[in-house]
Design a protein around this nucleic acid. Sequence first.
RNA 1: GGCGCGGUGGCAGAGUGGUUAUGCAGCGGACUGCAACUCCGUGUACGCCGGUUCGAUUCCGACCCGCGCCUCCA
Length: 462
Amino acid sequence: MMRIYNTLTQRKEEFHPLESGRVRMYVCGMTVYDYCHLGHARVLVAFDVITRYLRHRGYDVHYVRNITDIDDKILRRAEENGEPFSELTDRMIRAMHEDEARLGVLSPDEEPRATGHIEEIVAMIHRLIASGHAYEADNGDVYFAVESFPDYGKLSKKKLEDLVAGARVDVREAKRSPADFALWKAAPEGEVSWPSPWGDGRPGWHIECSAMSTKCLGDTFDIHGGGPDLLFPHHENEIAQSECATGHPFARTWMHAGAIRVDKEKMSKSLGNFFTIREILEKHPAEVVRYFLVSSHYRSQVDYSEDNLVEAGRSLTRLYHALRGVTPAKSDSVPETGHDRRFAEAMDDDFNTAGAMAVLHAVANEINQHRRDGEDLEARQSAAVLVRLGAVLGLMQQDPEAFFQADTGGELSAADIEAMIQARADARKARDFAEADRIRDELADKGIILDDSREGTTWRRG
RNA sequence: GGCGCGGUGGCAGAGUGGUUAUGCAGCGGACUGCAACUCCGUGUACGCCGGUUCGAUUCCGACCCGCGCCUCCA
């Protein structure tokens, strides 16, 4: 039995998909006007792990993650750059896909784009107007009438009257109520636009997700996820639009990832305290970044710091050390172990990856014990367990040597290092330990750590 | 102000009404030419104050502190 925390009900609930054995999931992806930062990585990795675990558990998962490729920020950035908006968005989408791939994030099954669904968006707005939930304003914009939806605020637990009282007043807007939000924005002459019954314009921010999720997954689906700052207003507005347009309940379970923080503050575009994925990957192996993200629960806040990433690297190193020099048995040949069960127990409880990670370390310890005792077969079987459980978290899929020796731009090539190791081996054979240690120190200065064993010496970049 | 989340050992980070999280760092031992890796062992942890209970870090209440959303942000 799986339990998932549902933002809508504010509690963990038993998870039962609408259709037995099949999970329909929609996650709000990126607005592509800049490179992805670590906060985006958190969401990407969190829902990647969720998808992997659901599949591991036997569900047929249909995972949709959208791309918002038209909005104010995109247009502004494109204008600053002096380029067509689609050139900007194409570039950022490519970059995003690169970042994802490096972090081991599997592609969603569908990746719909707002600009590819203008028809569906217009149709949905049309229905909302027809049913009295939206209206065309004098300035050509179309707004959602928040007061027409009694459930408004049910996700973010906000009261409409508080929102109205605190709403920002923009004199250019022609809203009936301050809390109303745009479904369609009239485009000024010369700006990117699509034709509509209300004149040329473009979609408001939230409507694309309602239109695309409904199109890809149906009126009602199982899981809707996204970053913490999407809860309000984005997701609240999606619910309003979708439930008013279709007359059916929208997503059943709402999942939100926790924020990444830097120096006790949320990492965000507006604060400017963000680190892009590619910046971080210049300094740390991608799997270490992933390990860092997965090592805390997806809903908790996480503090980004160099120290924390370094520690994650050490911890992951321990796991790979257990695998070093061991050829894992075929996973199929290793029946379910207590580790598999403990792992599943942790993951069944709202995807407790931190608990699952402890199991990985227990398996690593077991491998090391078998190796100490010369139990090769058992070691290989345990190694298979480590790799197969790691796969569910998107970890431990590299060859250990590849992990240890990944070229991080050091001055020494693998061949240089091997030559020095050979020289040291010769010195040791001649019992010239001063020379042997000199070589080892020289390598250590350049970030190369040697590990001696009965089978010989291996090296890694530390 | 409204709504919500959290305060766990040196650090990171799970969890539980009474029994070992786990990792990093530290310390002792084994292994090693010496290290590294690994193994074995080791540490007065649960913000504060009340309450419920045979027993609370775990439940309830108050308080203190931190954070998030309420505006574009994953």
